[in-house]
Design a protein around this nucleic acid. Structure first.
Lengths: 387, 387
DNA sequence: TGACTGTTAAGTAGCTTTATCAATAGCCGT
DNA sequence: ACGGCTATTGATAAAGCTACTTAACAGTCA
């Protein structure tokens, strides 16, 4: 319903971008399909496809035979029209050291190359580190530099898109203002950045538990901290300074001791879980380990605490679904989920279904790929509209 | 960026609706102004204005002389093209009894008639009550029935637009499923409904403290309960079942007594405020009265409690601005605001500016008018697009 | 033969450019 | 001080352009 006016050129740009959008997202469409969806006439569709093919954006990917008449050409976006790189910066990798996971995928989302390295960010320059990873991926996949249209960064901390700075991060060097534009300059590409939890929610939306949900909240229970991502109809709620979802800071108020400041992080953050495990006599090196090994009783107490946070989220946002994610939630699995669900039913006044993440593998990296892919597609569509 | 395709007819519909939208919202535009904004050519603008005038949607409201050449005609939406009625149902009116406040305004937003009555909803039928109020307003303003294109209801409780039912309300008869469609049927108009706090936020957005804010959260501290409205870029966050902002249910967790369930309503809802006032030796009949009469010390303690809620909201949403509204916040005024601001600075880990409502008069009713007006404008624009 | 794919040709809707007329403020000369 | 002249702007009219639609047709396969 935006105010948009123009002449026949606008019409062409709109039709062309609408067709490209359709070929990018469902993909695999014949002329007849496009005709049906867009309600445009056959000659228009034909010319439109000719132009998009000439621009190298789409190709014929197959033929649909079986019906009378000649086999219909099936069109889809050309996988090699553009590439995306996702780079996930992790404070603690699987081995416990800071690590970088990265992947390169084509326009259809199939991964062409991956890289995983350990970097001591105290010594390394963030710009050249990221640039190096991108170059390595690019060479490994045999892709020329200009074809990478977007690089998506995932960082622990919050990202403020307005000032293009990463905030509240513990990774050395990444909190510096102007870092993201400098990486973009070094790479010669658009660079996006986002909170790792937000990116996990993007993955959940596209290929996980959030696929069918109109909206959901994702509670990330990580080794280092808590996080919340809020997906409203497919778009993430970021807040004014990118600080939405810093749920670890939700304060708890105790009438009996109003001056002892505690927050949700103190209630079920990593250290709190370790302490609780000790009280219950459960052995384990990491929070994930003790949750995986936890007794039913221990999980029930932990669930009571988690539900305090979930109830606050539910009362403020009323989401359709809550997804429990992050290494600790993943370690808890079904046992933790049933404990949380029953605790939620007892304690929370409103209803909401709860589930655990359906993503296998590195949710943050996959989400960064999805976000990067979306950005690339928007760039391609916008380029057509602009002419 | 929505997939939209079509022929030249679509183009005309788009241009026409864009022009109407411009004449509805800023209004008072000459042909030259429209030409500049839409980048359409003079003949197109002329014919477009001719059609809109013939449809009775716009009129010449003045002439712009002073420059050489003929005086340019100034166009704007015809105030009498459509009307809106807002009906605010209040559990406790100014006198303490359930009351209904209503107003009728034209397309430019100027109020043509108002009505305020006390209704005992235990005895009265909601459908005929609302219909009666609308008819009374209509006759008083001298408007024929067909010209009222939208009736906006404001109710205490939450509204689920999907099932078109009002939930969590204490007004007798209004929680019945199918009530809103039945009112619409009786009136022969579109009928919208919304939470009273949400509507107060709509008013704040259009004419109050939220005018400049990209987003804000409005904390309503009422005699009967707490509420939160979340405005993201001009659209309200409603939640899945319309239950977003039921902040009174945010639970508090005390590690020392985990089984005593208390929530924010217990912390600074009306009864809690009265109890706190008693502890501080402050006399007064209502929460608003004691807050208005409250000592600095009392307000400081109250502010500490309010900030618990605000800190949770800030950590989850990171709003640009928090607006304190509702009768109790209004009674507290600047004194409460300074107390809350300083308490927030001490207790909350994130920053956020706080202010009190800038609406004078019945914020809910004004918000309902604004929401109704917006709905009417959307209907008019959509009608043009449809042809 | 009939259904379906894809192209070519003619027609139409709607916008833009260009040209023209009309009106008025400001200037200038008497 | 006043009336006519000019520059500037508002609005309409005519011609041209762009992009879509409808209609007709050629080709292919069950």
């Amino acid at each position: 319903m935006s105010r948009l006016a123009g002449s026949s050129k606008l019409l062409r740009a709109m039709n062309e971008s609408a067709a490209l959008e359709l070929l990018l997202d469902p993909g695999m469409l014949t002329r007849a399909d496009l005709r049906r969806i867009t309600a445009l006439s056959t000659p228009t569709i034909s010319e439109l496809l000719r132009r998009l093919t000439a621009a190298g954006l789409i190709t014929v990917v197959g033929h649909d035979s079986g019906r009378p008449g000649p086999a219909a050409e099936i069109y889809a976006a050309d996988p090699d029209a553009a590439y995306t790189v996702a780079v996930s910066i992790r404070e603690t990798g699987t081995s416990g050291n800071p690590s970088v996971a990265a992947a390169l995928c084509d326009l259809t989302g199939t991964i062409r190359a991956t890289v995983e390295t350990h970097v001591d960010f105290l010594g390394a320059d963030p710009v050249s580190t990221v640039a190096g990873v991108v170059t390595r991926l690019r060479k490994r996949a045999g892709v020329e530099a200009g074809r990478i249209r977007h690089v998506q960064l995932g960082v622990p901390g919050s990202y403020d898109p307005r000032s293009e700075t990463i905030r509240l991060t513990d990774v050395p060097g990444f909190g510096r203002p102007g870092l993201v534009p400098r990486i973009a300059e070094a790479l010669g590409t658009r660079v996006g950045a986002d909170n790792d939890v937000n990116l996990a929610a993007v993955a959940e939306r596209r290929r996980g538990a959030g696929r069918e949900a109109e909206n959901f909240a994702l509670l990330w229970i990580g080794q280092d901290g808590l996080g919340l991502a809020i997906d409203i109809n497919g778009t993430l709620l970021r807040g004014t300074r990118g600080g939405a979802g810093e749920i670890g800071y939700v304060p708890l108020y105790s009438p009996d001791s109003p001056h002892r400041k505690i927050d949700l992080q103190d209630l079920f953050g990593g250290p709190a879980i370790m302490e609780l495990a000790r009280d219950h006599g459960i052995a384990g090196e990491t929070p994930a380990a003790v949750v995986a090994a936890g007794s039913e009783e221990f999980l029930a107490v932990l669930a009571d605490r988690v539900v305090v946070g979930l109830a606050a989220v539910t009362a403020i946002l009323d989401p359709y679904l809550i997804v429990l994610a992050g290494p600790i939630a993943q370690a808890g699995g079904e046992a933790l989920l049933t404990a949380v669900t029953s605790a939620f039913g007892r304690a929370a006044p409103l209803e909401c279904s709860i589930t655990v993440t359906a993503i296998e593998g590195d949710a943050v990296l996959l989400g960064a790929l999805d976000a990067g892919l979306k950005a690339v597609r928007e760039v391609l569509v916008a380029a057509i509209r602009a002419g």
